[in-house]
Amino acid sequence: MKFFVALLSFIFSVVIADGVDHAEHSGYVVKTNVDLLRYREECVSQLNIPLDLVMQYQEWKYPNDEKTHCYLKCILEKFELYDAEKGFDVYRVHHQLEGDKADHTNAMHVAIDKCAKEAAVASDDACVRAYRGFTCFLMDYPHLIPAGNGSK
């Protein structure tokens, strides 16, 4: 569940260029499992997500459909990791995943940046870009997906 919070804090359109001043990211507050549960409820309600999809999301299954795309966009926006116009905030995503120990020169940061850039050109639709970035990261880091009983 902790990783899910971190990952959903992660993902997805136009990436902030490497030369940008990242001081604004230093004030980012890492979200908790409590935040995730609240955001889930809000997004499910707001988007009228059917129970069968909610159950799939709890098992880390994200079908390639419009409801799922927009659900992930909603969650990522609430985590302040994604903006429909600006795309993924790579530094915030990395900070959410690794906290204060995030080394923005390591392989995870590079992978997050790669997925964010790929998502940025995936579609004109912000929901699709959010989905693409999120699923890209899951493919790069499948070992981070918690095993278990739907408690994600």
Rank of each mutant, 00 (worst) to 15 (best):
137 F>G: 07
125 D>N: 11
69 H>M: 15
61 K>N: 05
12 F>E: 13
104 H>R: 06
6 A>F: 02
25 H>S: 09
7 L>R: 05
148 G>V: 00
22 H>I: 15
140 D>T: 09
58 Q>A: 13
127 C>G: 01
102 A>R: 07
21 D>S: 04
91 Y>R: 04
138 L>F: 01
133 G>I: 03
18 D>L: 08
54 V>I: 12
136 C>D: 07
68 T>S: 09
52 D>A: 11
143 H>P: 02
38 R>G: 08
147 A>V: 01
59 E>F: 04
32 T>F: 12
22 H>P: 14
117 K>R: 13
42 E>Y: 12
100 D>T: 14
137 F>C: 02
129 R>H: 08
146 P>V: 03
131 Y>R: 06
125 D>V: 01
70 C>F: 02
110 V>G: 13
50 P>L: 02
90 V>P: 03
47 L>N: 04
20 V>L: 13
44 V>I: 15
25 H>V: 09
115 C>G: 10
113 D>R: 14
92 R>T: 07
120 A>C: 13
56 Q>A: 08
107 A>K: 11
100 D>I: 04
124 D>A: 13
71 Y>P: 13
122 A>Q: 01
108 M>V: 12
45 S>K: 03
89 D>M: 02
3 F>T: 14
102 A>N: 05
43 C>A: 03
115 C>A: 04
92 R>K: 15
80 E>A: 12
43 C>L: 00
116 A>H: 01
89 D>W: 11
38 R>L: 11
143 H>R: 14
81 L>R: 13
145 I>D: 03
70 C>A: 02
45 S>G: 10
85 E>D: 15
17 A>M: 04
61 K>E: 09
58 Q>R: 15
74 C>Y: 03
78 K>R: 03
98 E>M: 11
27 G>H: 01
110 V>Y: 13
130 A>W: 08
127 C>A: 05
47 L>V: 10
94 H>E: 15
145 I>K: 02
